[in-house]
Structures are given as C-alpha cells and as structure tokens.
Design a protein around this nucleic acid. Sequence first.
DNA 1: GATGAATGAGGCTTCATTCAT
DNA 2: CATGAATGAAGCCTCATTCAT
Lengths: 216, 216, 216, 216
Amino acid sequence: MSPEWSDRPSSSAAGTGGEGEPEKRRAILRAAVEVFAEKGYQGCRIADVAKQAGVAYGLVYHYFRNKEELLESVFDQQWSIFITALRAIGERGGSAPEQLEEICRFAIDVFRNAPAAIRVLLLEVAHTPNTFRAGSTRETFEEAVEIVAGIVRRGKERGEVRVEVDPVVAAASLLGALELNLTGMLMGILGGTSEEEIERVKRGVIDLLFSGMTAR
Amino acid sequence: MSPEWSDRPSSSAAGTGGEGEPEKRRAILRAAVEVFAEKGYQGCRIADVAKQAGVAYGLVYHYFRNKEELLESVFDQQWSIFITALRAIGERGGSAPEQLEEICRFAIDVFRNAPAAIRVLLLEVAHTPNTFRAGSTRETFEEAVEIVAGIVRRGKERGEVRVEVDPVVAAASLLGALELNLTGMLMGILGGTSEEEIERVKRGVIDLLFSGMTAR
Amino acid sequence: MSPEWSDRPSSSAAGTGGEGEPEKRRAILRAAVEVFAEKGYQGCRIADVAKQAGVAYGLVYHYFRNKEELLESVFDQQWSIFITALRAIGERGGSAPEQLEEICRFAIDVFRNAPAAIRVLLLEVAHTPNTFRAGSTRETFEEAVEIVAGIVRRGKERGEVRVEVDPVVAAASLLGALELNLTGMLMGILGGTSEEEIERVKRGVIDLLFSGMTAR
Amino acid sequence: MSPEWSDRPSSSAAGTGGEGEPEKRRAILRAAVEVFAEKGYQGCRIADVAKQAGVAYGLVYHYFRNKEELLESVFDQQWSIFITALRAIGERGGSAPEQLEEICRFAIDVFRNAPAAIRVLLLEVAHTPNTFRAGSTRETFEEAVEIVAGIVRRGKERGEVRVEVDPVVAAASLLGALELNLTGMLMGILGGTSEEEIERVKRGVIDLLFSGMTAR
DNA sequence: GATGAATGAGGCTTCATTCAT
DNA sequence: CATGAATGAAGCCTCATTCAT
C-alpha cells in the first residue's frame, strides 16, 4: 500500500521518494524505527541504531543533531505516513463505514508489513519526555484523532452513523481498539500473526465497532 | 470505589491487606507509582522515587533488590488491584452489558482518583525490558483480557451479546478504547478532566461498544 | 596445641581465656576471621561478619568502633597467638634445627585446624590500607621475622647453623616457603589436604631448608 | 633484562608482541599495574587507574568490559611475562643450580625495576574474587610452580639435586622464599632497597636453598 | 545489650556527544 | 562523508555507619 512501510531495504538506485537523500541517512532512519519500536525512547541507544544500520557510530551525528532530533524524525515520519494515508482515505469519498473500514484495513496491513512502525505510532505516544511530546507528537496524535472524528462526523450528517455517537470518542475508541488488538497480537496473546488470524481480528474489530455488542 | 487507588496515604488502620508492611516501604511504592507513571520505566530514576517518597536513597534498596524489582512490584500491585476488581465485577452477577458498563465505570473512576495508576497499567504494558515483560506482565495483561472476554462469552451464551462477536477481540477493544480515551484526556486532547467531561466520555465509550456506530 | 585456633565454638560456660568477654563479641571475632580470610580486607563486609556470627547487624558496632578496628583486632589476635607460640618455641630451648622444625610443625598444625587463621596471617600482610599496615601489622610481621631470625642467630653462635646463613633472610625464607606451600595446598595445587599429604609437605620444607638442594 | 618490565613506556618500535595495540590502551594497562599493586584488587578504583593513565574515565570501558576484565588482563599479562621468562630459563640449558639461580636473579631484577609488577604477581594470587581466581590465576600459578619443579626434577635425574628433595615442594619453597623476602624489602623490614642490599638478599636466598642451614 | 531500619557518600558502569583523522 | 577513539556527566547499587527502639 505504501512502499515506505516495507521492512525490505529499497534498492539504492530506485528513487523511492526522498530523492537526493543519502543512502546511509535512510539506513539510519530505518534502523531507528526498529530500535525505537523495540526499546522505546529511553531504551533506544545511538549505538544500537548505528549497529543496526551498519554504519559507524559518529555518522548518526553527521545526519542528526542529537538523539532527540533523530527519534523525533522517526516519529514524525511514521506519523506523517500514517496521517497522509488517513487523510487520503478521508478524502477519497465513500460512506463513513467504508472509510473507517478502510482505516482498519490500512492499520492492520501496515502492521502485517512493518510491526515496528506500528509500535512507534501507537505505543510511544505518551512515553517520550516532555519536550519531545510537547513538540509534534501531541499535535500529530490530535490530528489523527481529528481526521477519524471528521469521518464519523460526516457520517452522522449523512445519516450513516447514529446521532448519539460522539465523533471524538468514537475516533479514539477505534484507534484504541486497534492498538490493543495489535499489541495483543504482538505480545502473542491474541492468537498468532498468521494471515487468517489477522483477518479474523480485523473483521472482529470492524464488526464490533459498527454493530456493537448488543443482541437485537 | 477502592481506597487503595487514592493518592492520599491511607491511615494505617485501614485493612488494606498489606497490614504489617512498613510505613516507608509503602511510601516508596506510592512514590514509585507516581514517578513510574510520569517518566516510564526507563526514565524513572531511583533518586526521584526516593525524593518523592521523602526517604533516603539507600532505603529503596533496603526494601527492593533493585530498580527492576521495585518497578515490577509497582506494576504487579497495580495490575493486581485492577484484576481483583475486574474479577469481582465478573463474579458479582448481572447481565454482560451491566458488567462491562461496570468495568468502564471502574476504570474511569480510578482514572479520576489516581491517574498515575492508570498510566502504569495501560501505558507501560509493552515498554519494559524483556525480563520484566517476560515475567508477570504478559500473564497479567492476558488475564485481564481473559476476564473481560469471559464476561462477553457468558453474555453470548445468555443471548445478551450478538453471536458474531469474538469475545477476545471485544475484550481487547473495550480495554483499548478505554486506554486511548483516557490517554487522550491525560494529554488534554479529549476535552478536559472535569466531572461532566469524564461522564460524557464514559457514556460515549459504553454506547459505542454496545450499540455500534451504524444507524438503523 | 592452642585451643583458640580451633574452629569449633567453645562452650559458653568454659572460661576459654578471655574471661568476662561476652559470648557474642567472641562470635563476631570468630566470624570475622573466617570472612576476613575468605574475602580479604576490602572484600570483607560487616554484613557478612554479622550473618556468619549469627548476630544483628548493629551489634558489631556495639563491640567495635568500626570496620578497621574490628579487622585490626582480628589481625592482632591472630598474630599475637602466632607470635606467642613462636616466642614460646624460641624460649623453650633445644637446638636451632629442633626449634625451627617445631615452628614448621606448629604452622602446619594450625593450618590443619584453622586454615582461615593462616590466611589472615600470611596473605593479608601487605594488602591492607596504609593506616592499617602502618599500625600494628608491620611491627608484628617484623617481630615474627625477628623471632625466627633470633633462633637462627643463636644457632649460628652454637655452630648448628652454617656461618654463611643470613638469619633474617633465612627467617623470611622459612616463613615464605611455609606460606606458599600452604597457599598451594589451600588452592588445591600441591596435592590435597590429607594427613599424609600435609606430613609429606612438612617434611619436605624442613628437609629442604636444613639440608639444601645440592647433592653431595 | 626484559624491557616490558620497565616502568618507562617502551618506544613503540620495540617488538614486544602487542604491536598494533593502541597507545592509550597500554597506558591504561600500565597504570592498572601500578594501582593494582598499590591497592590490591578490591581497593583499586577505576578512577585511580584513569587518572594515573592520564585518560578519561570512560576510556577504560572502551578498552575493557569492566573492572574485573581489566585487572584480569593485568594479572594475566604480568604472569605471562613472568612465566615466559621462567620457561626460557628452563629451556636455556645449564645445570639445575644454575637455572634456579637464574630464576632468583630474574625475580629480584624485576623487583628492582618494577616492584609494582612483583606485587601483582606474588601478592594477589589468593585475593581476588572467585570467578577471577577460578579463571586463569590458578592455572598460571600452578604452571609457574610446575616449571620450577621441572627444573628441580631434571636436576635430580642428573644428580645435581639430592634425591630426597620433593620437586614441587622445593619449587613452592623457592618462590615463597623469594616472595617473602621481596615483601620484606618492600615493607622496609629487610633492610632497604639499595643495590648492595638486594644483592645480599639474592645471595642469601640462593645459598640457603642450595646449601641448607645445617652446619657440616 | 541487641536489633534492624535509615542514611548517604562513594564506586562502577553506561551512553550521549564531541573530535581528530 | 565516514570512522571510532575519547570524554565526562549521570544513574544504579553497595555498604560503612548511625540511631531510635
């Protein structure tokens, strides 16, 4: 769906978007996603990133001012990809249920290809130092919620969504439900990570959020 | 609802279970909850805990072998309180909707009284070192999901919950929706933390998960 | 030979010499010998001593001003026993060879009964902080050498010892040879610690120092 | 006799074996010998080593995993030099008395040039933590004893040494006698450290071990 | 006497960051 | 660009010592 989310290193010749961006800089960013996702902000060491990227220690500081800037780049990049996709889905048209389903599908697809990225997105939101959070994280998270809420809101206007539904709460609930189900899969609690399992969970979340639990 | 979750130090007479436990040990644990919640596992410094508890640095090591054991204690304690409450709700009888509503109410009440505790519970699940996670965290998280899933399952048997609902996915979604809504409130994104706001969010989550979004 | 060197705790009723000395104080001293011998000055922790003695932490400080004083007491006590014995042997009369043989026998007997004590005597001589060493250690060590040297010296006067022998060097050599042979046994290098082995080593050292290596 | 034992930093051209070894790494090792010898294993602080070597604190950890590895390196290096020399003497030929005399001369020469090294070799054998001791120390000490014992053994076969002499005991005695005489000199007990004094002690030890004390 | 909780300075170790090559 | 040695502040942990009971 979006090539940047693939874990496979793209061949250096192909201009994968960030045209003139040096090969090694991308390697560092890619490595940082992994390590950041694995260890969290505080547990992520520059040495680990460099080793994972296969570059020398000091090169990280050639491309990034310091640890904070590096990880903020990672964070922004990941969220920006995610938000771009959210926005695209929101603007693509279709009914609210269709759009929200698309979001679930997207999130879970990403998870299938790049679980590390998901962890960066969902798990670090509240765990970075204040200066960090105060920066882009908060706004970005807020924006994601707002996009989803907008979809719900428009769905209400069109009569596709019940009037009682609070758009912001619904948006947060959707994202939260996705997060914990994905976390559960990552931790090996909610079944494995086979295709069928993932598909089953995806359907389950969508069905629940659309139709609710209550028998009728 | 449960006095242990209050941030105020409970008078020693309160039969909380940890009866003969030294005063200062409890102070350390209480402080650790705060700092752990504020800074996360890696960012939490023993010096901060000691200062917050008003005890000398070394005393922390009198009661806990090391940082890991301290924070694991915090984690276990918080989860154990939470799970005890979950279990109590599950065994108290009533319909599945009533029980799940009770869980939401409990979670949000706790949040109102002790936001720090909630953060420890919900936000640190996946962010602790491996030895830590491998320990009780995984099982405990799993247990929480399983208790909620059990409520859903019994609801299905009684015809209160739609047969299409996957109990485990529903459980994870419920907890995830709660988490992200609470996180949003903590981060100041989903409105403030006034009584009415909290009440509104609580109703919103319950309504969404029970009735779904779809207009009929 | 001297009851104080036994590892067995003497019954509290028997006045073992230090008459009015409290039972627990002796237990601490006895424990300190063990731990000191096992870990050395720096590695010896008050907590270890207390545990080994079966007394409470703080009691050590009831009987001894601080760690230094405790260990110095241990050191002095052990050396004083050793030196008393040396002196007794020196004054008992007999030829120099007989006296030196007696010293070897004594040292090795002690080793058999209380290897810990020997280690305190022989192995810590040069490893304690300066203030410590500057205190009694140096003089005591010097005194031991001097006593043995005196025996050699008188042996020379009586024609039992070759005139070329330097008494002080001979004394240091005797004690050093004993030390390293005992150390070797402790480390399990020079055979085991069976009766016959010990006897064999004892004879070997005496024979070597008296008759030399040179074949005639 | 061997340039490595000199305290003066050897010019990089000297083919000492550790050719490409970084300058500062050697400085650290050299400093560690001093401090280790001065304070013993437990009393030796990394900060002291760094200061003595004139490098930053952290650099020690750039070259050595931790304190234990550093000091074990020191220990191994010193013993390895010593043992190499012992072996060379043993293989150089000559009668047993000549070889043993050579060993004494070597040991005492080394002492003259690098007293710190001798202390590391002789005084720390039994004072390091168990993991440490269990490692190379034991075997290395054992090897030193065995080399000297081999010389004695061959001396017996050639009739240069009395048949009654136990080679291992003789070896341990020789080394022990050297140790305590050197210790005595270090502590200022056995005369000073002037050339004549050293020479006198050397002769004394050799004479004693070869000819024994007994007047004939 | 006896106990063990409480204190805090000191040492080990890590790791972000800089710098010479 | 790229490397990795070098730096040192900061955090964890230990343990001698004190003190209230």
